[in-house]
Write a protein that binds this DNA or RNA. Structure first.
Length: 519
RNA sequence: GGCCCCAUCGUCUAGAGGCCUAGGACACGGGCCUUUCAAGCCUGCGACCGGGGUUCGAAUCCCCGUGGGGUCACCA
């Protein structure tokens, strides 16, 4: 059987982290079996600007390396891939259902339906539509229409028996038909609803496996009913565990950011991202800048594969130890059988650790390549970058080692090398410079520095240690003030590296200027 | 509330009846190192939701509770 999977986002303007996980699993499954991954845009109800709301989603998937074989931008044998452009087929399907008696026109007004529902609720029995405004014949329809009523089309769900599906992750699931409502599949204006459209499109696209989040499990009976009634064979279903909130089992939601921020891990990751975004000039009103949205990670400088790898582990695992996979390894290892069925909560700290792992594996040139765009955006470096600046940044990257966790981190590690007079952190000045004797110490150290040749980390260390021994003080006594004097802050690469990168002239100039702030 | 799903360390998970004194990873605690650090090294804490069965033997199978979640739109 040819495997064909799909991801069907609606154009909302952003790519939710849970959505990516669904897309990723569909993509992995298709790749694993040499099948096709199809991207369909479910814009049925959309009145917004689809192009604008779609772009971030397509860009996000591309960035993550989740490529589609058919869909927007690439076309394919089943075009169009926008649900709104397939309306004619949907309407045809509704006509067929009507003709075969699997659906009916219903002339009830919304208030009348509400009333029935409330009555059932009050009586404590499960609600089931009475179908008293249903028109099963043209005569009945004419009669209701004469009253000035409008009609929608509803599914005529079976009221006995049950549906059994064999879900690839959940196993056997049974639904009693009598619990299913006569859902509307077509509005009075003739437009069709999602469930109908989705089933028809899946069939037209020859989707073999419907892999989607668990929230759709309860939707399966009505969709299966539509498919069966239309004479389609059912696709295989796989309902993925929900991606839950950090430390909870509730579905992760973009709207609840404020609440998640109370989680220390989440807050740490969000604040770190904010610091980077501030410097790259990201519009502050960007509400897609949120750790629940994929854009966040791109703006901050995470590596796309780190996200894919982390997300693959959210609800799936290969064994008891393998955590890091190359793209090829993941594709080869992936299987529906090893998907977990309980909700998995999104842990930004673990994502951070995965990102750390991949960043660690990058060489200086690779890091430079992904970090340069951040320096350009923050205007710390001219465009095109002068060779000298590039060389400096490369040295900073080497000296910073594992301290650079995401590409955006380069901003706070390279800034003081790239500007003539770096800003001084007031707290650092107060703690390390504005103390008695520091000025005098710095002056003496500057004297020593001026004679160091070559002006490189090795010799600088030797000289500094000798200086400390002679003065009878601790290494930290000189290191900390000097660091603040030349960089303006208390954290950064090793001090000897910092001095060497600056060069003797600049280092001395900065120490000289810092003297003014010393005690 | 009805229906459906789920239940192993704080989190992600391994575990398909004896290999389990329950393994790994992240997080966390402690120690060391030290020139700052979401650095490094060592080390520690930490879980089978409860109750009944089945079995020589249950984290694993069954039942009942309990707890959590999803879904019940003329949204997708």
């Amino acid at each position: 059987m040819t495997v064909r999977t799909r991801f069907a986002p609606s154009p909302t303007g952003y790519l939710h982290i849970g959505g990516v996980r669904t897309a990723l699993f569909n993509w992995l499954f298709a790749r694993k079996h040499g099948g096709s991954f199809i991207l369909r845009i479910d814009d049925t109800d959309s009145e917004r600007n689809v192009d604008e709301a779609l772009e971030p989603i397509l860009a996000g998937l591309k960035w993550l390396g989740i490529d589609w074989d058919e869909g927007p931008g690439v076309g394919g044998p089943h075009a169009p891939y926008f649900q709104s452009q397939r309306a004619a087929g949907h309407k045809l399907a509704v006509e067929k259902l009507l003709a075969s008696g699997h659906a009916y026109r219903d002339f009830a007004r919304p208030e009348e339906i509400d009333l029935e529902r409330k009555e059932a609720q009050a009586a404590g029995r499960p609600y089931l539509y009475s179908r008293r405004f249903a028109a099963f014949s043209p005569d009945e329809a004419a009669r209701w229409a004469a009253e000035g009523r409008q009609s929608v089309v509803r599914l005529k769900m079976p009221r006995e028996g049950s549906l059994v599906i064999l879900d690839a992750v959940r196993g056997r699931v049974e639904f009693a038909w009598e619990r299913e409502q006569d859902h509307v599949i077509q509005r009075a204006d003739g437009s069709c609803l999602y469930h109908l459209a989705s089933v028809v499109d899946d069939h037209d696209f020859e989707i073999s496996h419907v892999i989607r989040a668990e929230e759709h499990l309860s939707n399966t009976p009505r969709q299966a009913f539509i498919a069966i009634s239309l004479g389609y064979s059912l696709p295989a279903y796989a309902h993925l565990p929900l991606v839950a909130e950090p430390g909870s089992r509730t579905k992760l939601s973009k709207r609840k950011l404020a609440q998640y921020l109370k989680n220390p891990d989440f807050r740490q990751v969000a604040e770190h991202g904010n610091r980077i975004a501030e410097r790259t000039g990201l519009a502050p009103e960007a509400d897609t800048f949120n750790p629940v949205i994929v854009d966040f990670y791109r703006e901050v400088g995470y590596m796309p594969w780190a996200i894919d790898n982390y997300l693959a582990l959210l609800g799936w695992s290969l064994d008891d130890k393998t955590e890091y996979f190359s793209r090829e390894e993941l594709i080869a290892s992936f299987s529906l059988e090893r998907i977990n069925s309980s909700p998995a909560s999104f842990d930004p700290k673990k994502l951070w650790a995965v990102q750390d792992h991949y960043m660690h594996g990058l060489g200086a040139d690779e890091k430079l390549a992904i970090m340069l765009p951040f320096l350009l955006k923050a205007k710390l470096i001219a465009d095109p970058p002068p060779a000298t600046a590039l060389a400096t940044v490369r040295k900073v990257i080497e000296a910073s080692g594992d301290r650079l966790k995401v590409a955006g981190d380069i901003l706070s590690y390279a800034d003081f090398f790239l500007v003539a007079e770096p800003e001084m952190d007031p707290l650092a000045v107060q703690q390390k410079l504005a103390k008695p004797g520091v000025g005098e110490l710095l002056s003496r150290y500057a004297q020593v520095l001026s004679k160091v040749t070559p002006f490189e980390p090795g010799p600088l260390e030797e000289v500094t240690k000798a200086f400390v021994a002679e003065a009878g003080i601790k290494l930290g006594d000189v290191i900390h003030p000097v660091r603040v004097a030349v960089t303006g802050k208390t954290v950064g690469p090793g001090l000897y590296d910092c001095l060497a990168i600056l060069g003797v002239h600049e280092a001395l100039a900065r120490i000289g200027r810092a003297l003014a702030a010393c005690g």
